[in-house]
Design a protein around this nucleic acid. Structure first.
Lengths: 213, 213
DNA sequence: AGACCATGTTACCGCTCAGTAACAATCGGG
DNA sequence: CCCGATTGTTACTGAGCGGTAACATGGTCT
């Protein structure tokens, strides 16, 4: 458990002015949950990292679970924003969008060794009907469906299978990195993903049977 | 956190005789850790589930961390035993051993939705130098190396890449199952794995370029 | 029988947790 | 300038945690 003392401040006092306490709390909570796990962080530590106190936290979030849901929702929103960015960066070129997704996934992998917040939360929140579980499932499903759409739009016939394969490779890479580090199997994620995409494109792409860019 | 009351007994009183308390404690601890997470189970609950008490637990394990390490070691041992079983089941036929590994992985997937205890522990035990982390890393690395050996023995040239791909697919399937359930991408794990093995065998197998069993 | 050792029982310690009450300070808008 | 809403401060509750002390019980071997 993270003690109340000597927590590396999420909001380093110098810049804790602009945002309202509520936003700072979510920001700090996300950071601490990510680094130490949800069950490894107490609300007091969150409030302190946000430059505020427990009372203010409980005025904005009725209980810790509500704060957890809000944090995970923020993660989900960033996931949606990623898709918007990818589409904006490669309008119409769905094959390039796929490659951009792989690149974005690689960025997540190289960011740190703490895996996906949603997957981690699904592991930690073992209570059957926890409100966060629905959100996690919906978000993961949406991400997968979106990837299917891009694969379909890229002309891949077995779009479902390719998308599911890429999802498992990414999910596996993020969890593997937590166990054996960045030099383990996850180091080859990009190579694997591009090879799989290539294999599916060769097999089931009508209009570009021989080209490969 | 799991309360002290109403825990479904791991050792249902009717059969809590034979094994010594120490073994019952490890068995119960593994089960509870698996189902509720390490941080979600208190030592009192473990002792109660094992049909004994906290004092006896602490006489065998100096602290909770020691018990955690022992439990993870037991998981690692079972992993080794799996390899022995696979080799014994298909002596000399390394391609069949690969298929047996896929089948065993599928069994893990269908067992329950709680993922790999080692990977879960790596997620929960965020403390940098926790004694369990070395064990987890060593075991995961050994599993991967063993898979590489089988791939090599099966005549696959890019054995490293195939083994790493299979590792990521399995790791991803187990974590995905926790988020979106058994009907998600993890449902296609066997199909994906066999397809990947096939692809690597076709590409880099000298003596059986056309056969496919 | 006696000694020993593993186990059971109860009570306790200090700590942290999630969550609350009561009151003081601050700050922006009329 | 003053009112009301937001925030800060302190102290507290009840519970669970990991871990320990002291003592009672039971079996086992000599």
């Amino acid at each position: 458990m993270v003690g109340n003392s000597s927590i590396s401040e999420t909001v380093p006092a110098s810049c804790c002015g602009p945002a309202r306490p509520r936003d700072r709390i979510v920001t700090s909570a996300r950071d601490l949950f990510h680094r130490h796990g949800i069950r490894g962080v107490g609300v007091e530590a969150i409030a302190e990292a946000a430059g505020t106190n427990k009372m203010t936290l409980y005025r904005h979030f009725g209980c810790k679970d509500d704060l957890i849901v809000e944090c995970l929702q923020a993660v989900a929103d960033e996931g949606l924003a990623m898709w918007v960015e990818i589409e904006a960066g490669h309008p119409g070129d769905h094959r390039a969008q796929l490659q951009a997704w792989v690149q974005q996934a690689a960025n997540w992998l190289s960011a740190d060794g703490r895996g996906c917040d949603l997957a981690n939360a699904a592991m930690e929140l073992t209570e059957a009907g926890h409100p966060a579980r629905r959100l996690i499932e919906k978000c993961k499903r949406a991400h997968r469906d979106r990837l299917v759409d891009v694969c379909k739009a890229a002309g891949i016939t077995q779009a479902d299978l390719l998308a599911d394969t890429l999802v498992l490779l990414l999910e596996g890479a993020r969890v593997s990195r937590q166990s054996v580090g960045a030099e383990g199997p996850s180091a080859k994620f990009v190579r694997m993903s591009e090879a799989v995409i290539e294999a599916f494109a060769e097999r089931g792409d009508g209009q570009r049977a021989a080209t490969q860019d």
